[in-house]
Amino acid sequence: MSSTTIRRRPTRSAPSMICAALLLGASVAAVWAGTTAVSGDTRIVDTAMAAAEAPWSGQATLIVAILTAVAGLLLIVIALTPGPYDAHVLQHGGTAQAAVRNKALETLLADTATSIDGVDAATATVTNRKADIRVATYVSERRDLRTTVTRTLQRRIDALELTHAPRASVSVRAHKD
């Protein structure tokens, strides 16, 4: 088994970096307030202490407390929600682990769709179970085109031999000039 996981769930880097940056900002403020107080200027510490002397039932205290609890709940949900995988595993005859990135599948499906007669532009979004393909066309008979594109793309997906092949879902819209 490779030490590299062939497909990954979101690493939650963005919320972690935001949290770390906020903690860093708070720590810099605390050190700055502490050092200015040690050097004789106690205005910042006095202001902070005056704010801390507000009653528990005060409006500002309650708002801060509720926002803190909501932020905590949000962080727990972000941390415990697994999130979708970033790739689809390819089953092939060999011994190697293999996977195709969701972004790569999107490129593949969009490229395949644009090669179909009548399709002027196509974009795709791939998740674990579904591949949404949006097609723009000048063709007036859009139902036939939708059937053709869906059949072609599903065949292309099936040919990849994925362990859990996503289902192709095509939407066709008239091209805007």
Partner: peptide, 27 residues
């Protein structure tokens, strides 16, 4: 990924418990 999720959970629990207690006392 695992480190981020662990620390987000720990900080989330601290904030949730602290904020919840402060709200309960205030009310």
């Amino acid at each position: 990924g695992r480190l981020n999720r662990v620390w987000l959970t720990i900080i989330g629990i601290i904030l949730l418990v602290g904020g919840g207690l402060a709200t309960s006392i205030g009310l």
